[in-house]
Amino acid sequence: MLAEVNNDPRVCCPIICGEYMRATGFFYTTGTENYLITARHNALPTKATILSPFTGGKYYSITTNDFLPVIDIYLRRKDEWFHHRLDLRDMPNGHVITIPKLDLLAIRIPFDPTTFQYSVFTGQDVTLPSEEENTLSGYGFGGGAFSDEEECHDVTDPGSYISNPMEITLENTAIHVPEKAKQFEPVFGISCDPTPEIDSIYNGMSGSPIIGDGLVGVWSGTARVPSVDDPKHETYLRVHYFGVELLKRAFNS
């Protein structure tokens, strides 16, 4: 269940893509450059499919055709919001990093998020999904953190339609590709919200960091899961995320 946090932990920030797509991003540094990380489908056409490492069948798929290159980033300092706009069409070569068939996107940013007291993850924070962790946490701007996407937004007054981020505690039911196949398949994991709400409440969470013992993944999408006892009754909400590990490898390549 999503719950608004009383004090913004500043592990993520709200973004709006194409002047209407509400989403979430967070920050990563290579040590020399800072990046905004989010789900690729928030801004770029995406076709990502995960095959089950157990059956070989399709486990998760996301396909979008939206091209929303203008990204508005909102940063909080005390009770004020600051705005920075990026246009992917103007970015130099190498400043936008994405991996084919993964719902991951990294965009080099020209500012230091720590000046706004935001957490900035490093390669040392990145961990693979682990079955040993009972719960994972997600932080993002879903629920009522954003005004309705049908409403126009004024970049000069984000405080009128953005509130505190939402936190969600997820049951970790992580799966990932066996070690011998990782060179062929993207790292991927799942977790469940055992007390799900209506689907629309999760709008805006895509791109959120999934956190366990470290930075595990980037929220991609959700799906309803039927109850084992009653297949006609959907009890759980499954959250799909892409592991940041392969993005880390892309930075190092």
Rank of each mutant, 00 (worst) to 15 (best):
I71Y: 08
I201W: 03
Y74S: 08
E179G: 02
N164G: 02
K232Q: 05
D90T: 06
T222I: 15
F184Y: 13
N93L: 04
G207Q: 11
F121S: 02
R40H: 08
D8C: 07
T127Q: 14
F67Q: 11
S137H: 15
T30M: 08
M1N: 08
N164I: 11
S52E: 01
G243Q: 00
A223C: 06
P45N: 07
I50F: 06
A23D: 04
D154T: 11
E167C: 07
G142W: 04
S137K: 10
R85H: 05
F54S: 14
G214T: 13
G94N: 13
V225F: 06
F121A: 13
T156F: 12
H41S: 02
I62C: 05
L44D: 10
G25D: 11
F26G: 06
G18T: 14
K182A: 07
S52Y: 05
G142N: 06
E33A: 15
P165F: 05
I198R: 11
T115M: 10
L246S: 07
S227P: 04
L36D: 00
T135Y: 13
Y139R: 08
V126H: 04
T38I: 01
K101S: 13
D154K: 09
R40Y: 04
Y60E: 08
T64M: 04
L86D: 07
S147D: 11
S61P: 03
E185M: 02
K78R: 13
E185K: 02
R22H: 11
T63G: 04
R77W: 15
N164R: 03
T122K: 06
C12R: 09
E149D: 14
N42V: 14
R10K: 14
A3W: 02
K180Q: 13
D103W: 05
G159R: 00
D103M: 05
E185L: 05
Q183V: 01
T46S: 07
P231V: 14
R238L: 15
R22D: 12
I16C: 05
S61N: 03
G31E: 09
F242C: 12
T114C: 10
R85D: 05
D90R: 13
I107Q: 02
S163F: 08
D230I: 14
N134S: 10
V11E: 09
F121Y: 14
T38A: 05
P129A: 05
F141R: 04
Y20V: 07
V216W: 04
T63K: 13
A145S: 15
K180N: 07
D112K: 04
L128R: 12
V120A: 01
Q124R: 15
I50N: 01
D193H: 03
G57K: 13
L75N: 00
A3F: 07
F188D: 00
V96Y: 01
D213L: 07
D230W: 02
P92M: 12
L246G: 00
E234H: 15
W81V: 12
S119L: 12
N172D: 04
T114R: 15
D72F: 09
L237I: 14
I15W: 05
G123S: 13
Y161T: 03
P69M: 03
S160V: 03
I73H: 09
L102S: 09
C13Q: 12
M166D: 01
T38H: 07
K101Q: 03
T49S: 01
